[in-house]
Computed example of a mutant assay.
Amino acid sequence: MNHAIAKTLPAREAAGPEAAESSWVDTHDRLRPRDFQRLGEFIHGYSGIKVPPSKSTMIEGRLRKRVRALGMHSLADYCDYLFDQDGLAAEEIHLIDVVTTNKTEFFREPEHFRILADDVLPRIASERRIGPRAPVKIWSAASSTGAEAYTIAMVLAEQRRHIPELAGVVYATDICTDVLGTARGGIFPAEMMTPVPPEIRSRYVMRAKDRTSSLVRIVPELRAMVQFGRLNLMDTSYPMDRDLDIVFCRNVLIYFDKPTQLAVLRRLCDHLRPGGWLFLGHSETLSGFDLPVRAATTAVFRRS
């Protein structure tokens, strides 16, 4: 442990994680109004996520995980550590991890994956040279535990059965480090595979040798197609190629205010090659934004 950090923490944290986990946390403890305001300003500035007062109970519940992990006794202790004892630099990633929402599922909004398979990928194959040295590049820009990224990889692998030259790579990023760890392992509860068509499931999902296990794993060849990394969409620039064929950024913009949405969308468009495709969530819109894309179908856009 960094000794400078240890000096600012209670004795339980300095003693080790076992002592920290044994600390008692009052589940009726509440954030002070000033602390909620400071947390909201930091979370919005760092991640773009809005934290209205209606979310206070949810935020309190999630922050208690960090109170417990650090061996503290109250949300007030935790906020004092963040804002008055210079703990924010050491804690910011953990804070963002616990407050971000990571809802995801395989083949979520399935029409998008039908469009990807039947229209977008065949068009890319016909419009430009593709192959192992010129793969189709797809970015899942808020990948959570990897369900979207692995779904994209399944669609790519399936289409390659019909278009052999269709090599592809999926870049998958998220702001939350915890979910990226899960995503890299490719291990999921078996019930998460319910939306996956049986024939696809049989090719790309492995059951455990222990038949009583409730876990399954994505096959190695599919895991090899996906590259996971941490990325904050609020950063002013992204370390991504600028000739991407497809960007998925679905059900993320709804957490941002309008100026943040526009800034993020402009940066995403900058990474699309001319003719590249942008997929948004069905509840998201580009209405009122001046962007270099045009609508192709519901929540799917193409760069001019």
Rank of each mutant, 00 (worst) to 15 (best):
E148S: 09
Y150P: 08
R114T: 15
V136P: 14
A141I: 11
S140V: 12
A142D: 04
A134Y: 11
D119A: 11
R129T: 15
V169T: 14
G146C: 05
V170A: 07
R123I: 08
S143C: 14
I163F: 00
V136S: 06
R123A: 15
V120R: 04
G131W: 13
A153L: 10
H112Q: 12
R128I: 11
E127V: 13
A167P: 01
P132T: 11
L116S: 02
W139G: 04
K137W: 10
A141D: 05
R128K: 14
P135C: 06
W139A: 04
L121H: 07
K137A: 12
I130E: 03
A157F: 00
R133A: 14
V155Y: 06
Y171Q: 14
V120Y: 14
A125H: 04
S126L: 05
D118V: 08
H112R: 04
I115R: 02
I152N: 02
G168S: 00
A172V: 09
P164L: 12
L156W: 06
A125I: 07
K137T: 09
Y150Q: 01
G168A: 02
I130R: 06
I138W: 00
F113D: 13
K137N: 10
A117I: 02
V169G: 08
R133I: 11
H112S: 05
A153W: 11
G168Y: 00
G131H: 12
A147M: 03
L121Y: 05
I130G: 07
S144I: 12
A142S: 12
L121P: 10
P164F: 05
A153K: 07
R128D: 06
A117G: 09
R114W: 13
I124W: 04
H162Q: 00
R160P: 00
Y150N: 03
A141P: 07
F113E: 13
P132C: 09
I130D: 05
A142R: 09
P164R: 12
R123P: 07
G131E: 10
F113P: 15
S126W: 01
S126A: 15
A157R: 01
R160A: 00
W139Q: 05
E158K: 09
G168T: 01
A149V: 03
I152G: 06
R133W: 07
S126V: 02
A125K: 08
A147R: 04
G168W: 00
T151E: 02
V169A: 13
V120H: 11
T151G: 03
A142I: 12
Y150T: 10
A141E: 05
Q159V: 06
V120K: 06
L156Y: 05
L116R: 07
E165D: 15
